[in-house]
Amino acid sequence: MEAVFFYVFGTLAVISALLTVTRRDAVASAFWLIFCFLSVAALFALLSAHFMAILQILLYAGAIMVFFLFVIMFLGKSQDRVKTSDWRVVALGVLSLIGATVVLTRLVGSTHAPFPAVADSYGGIEAVSEVLLTKYLFAFELTGLLLTAAVIGAVYLARREAPGSRGAKAPVVRGLTSQAATSTASSSAVQHEDVPHA
């Protein structure tokens, strides 16, 4: 029965992932990606990773994809123009991707032992957090630092074009144009500074 679920959700995930990267409309692409994430969450549950399946639905299919859709709606339909590379490049790329997948499959698909039996508590929130808050406590704290840095960076990027600020909104005065250029340079500097924190 496990195999049935694996093949059903695996096929759904692959099909929706293919539709994600081939749709012209970014909104359709985002909805297929949500569908793909839900299928992968089902696969997580099939692997007894119940807590991670819940987080996948809540965070990926919920929060992150809502954020993506919000940005897509915000930017409007101006990105409709779809152009891909030369068809020979695309054909070569697809062939090499298929080849790499086949090679990887041959490499990793050689184990035929079934999964070992695990306790009922495996993959639950208690078992995961026990490892997370003992062995990986420092990395857990660093994750909080990373999220703080991301929040500060996003707020900084969003604040500079507030109605009262002297950003790119007021290019009429000559002196302010150089100000906008300076703020662009400082924003890229902040972006580079974020990397060591990660």
């Binding site: 696969l43 692997l47 990793v108």
Partner: peptide
Amino acid sequence: VHLGHYLTL
């Protein structure tokens, strides 16, 4: 279903 299936997918 074993490990290879999941890694392939």
